[in-house]
């Protein structure tokens, strides 16, 4: 635990990260109104995509089987937004100046934030799943497969939250972070097989959807939840998550350490 001599104190980098994860979650307890964001959005997505779009198709039950894993993917990925936004806010408010002037591990503020956001993302996914079940979606795979599907989703989300962290640390303001993150996330989520099979799409969209890593994620989650054959989707998704993590963890840590201003 003494890998980082600069960590100081009696506790190591991990404990510091946990303190900062606590710090990121405490506002939810201080002001439970903030929870609405995590509860309302997934329910709304289920209503729109599973119930309303499902009603448009001839076979709502079949549509739910296709759309619900897509909604889970969408909801999880969009939730990574908060990581970067909170970091950008910490920079603007000078909170990071305080942390950087303290004898704590360089990674602690980022690890704390990402850990806290992984927890809220897990809650968001769970709420969406419960709403989906209420809307008629059924998990038809073996329990372990279904769990693996949810774990895969969380893992990919975790990888993406490091991209979000990097964007947040680079952004000039909270608003510009939000803009950039939306510009990245919308084509990734909507331009995937989450809601519409690529085969049904025209020209460029079809090409984009078929190369989009999120399509593999959505297909893998769908297969694991419904007991369909997973093919190579799981491995491609894992490889993408590993690659993104390997790139963006160092990038984010460097952006944090770099002495800006």
């Amino acid at each position: 635990m003494t890998a980082i001599p600069s960590a100081g104190g009696r506790r190591g980098a991990l404990a510091q990260g946990m303190t900062l994860a606590w710090r990121s979650l405490v506002p939810l307890r201080n002001e439970p109104g903030r929870l609405v964001q995590f509860l309302l959005q997934p329910i709304f997505m289920v209503v729109v995509f599973v119930l309303m779009f499902g009603a448009m198709s001839g076979d709502p039950e079949h549509a739910a089987r296709y759309l619900m894993p897509g909604v889970l993917t969408q909801v999880a990925l969009i939730s990574t937004n908060t990581t970067g936004m909170n970091l950008a806010e910490d920079i603007v408010n000078g909170v990071f100046d305080r942390f950087r002037s303290m004898p704590i591990a360089r990674s602690a503020p980022l690890v704390g934030r990402v850990t806290a956001d992984a927890l809220t993302t897990a809650v968001t996914i769970l709420v969406a799943l419960l709403a989906g079940i209420a809307a008629g979606f059924r998990i038809t795979a073996a329990p372990l497969d279904a769990l693996a599907g949810l774990a895969l989703l969380l893992l990919f989300t975790l990888a993406l939250s490091w991209v979000s962290a990097w964007l947040g640390l680079k952004a000039k303001s909270v608003a510009s972070m939000q803009g950039t993150a939306t510009a990245v996330l919308l084509p990734l989520t909507f331009g995937s097989s989450a809601f519409i099979p690529p085969d049904n799409l025209p020209g460029v969209l079809r090409w984009w959807s078929s190369v989009n890593p999120v399509s593999h994620l959505a297909d893998a989650v769908r297969a694991l939840l419904t007991g369909a054959p997973v093919g190579t989707h799981v491995w491609i998704t894992l490889a993408c998550a590993a690659a993104v993590t390997a790139c963006f963890v160092p990038l984010a840590v460097r952006a944090y350490t770099r002495r800006i201003r």
């Binding site: 104190g9 009696r10 606590w22 710090r23 405490v26 408010n93 000078g94 909170v95 305080r98």
Partner: peptide, 25 residues
């Protein structure tokens, strides 16, 4: 710093406890 750098979402007490914990208390 010139501009107060406290965590606005935490209470005053929570701000202080957080720093103490980070410093190894």
């Amino acid at each position: 710093g010139q501009y107060a750098s406290v965590d606005e979402k935490l209470t005053g007490r929570q701000n202080l406890v957080m720093i103490g914990r980070l410093l190894g208390m």
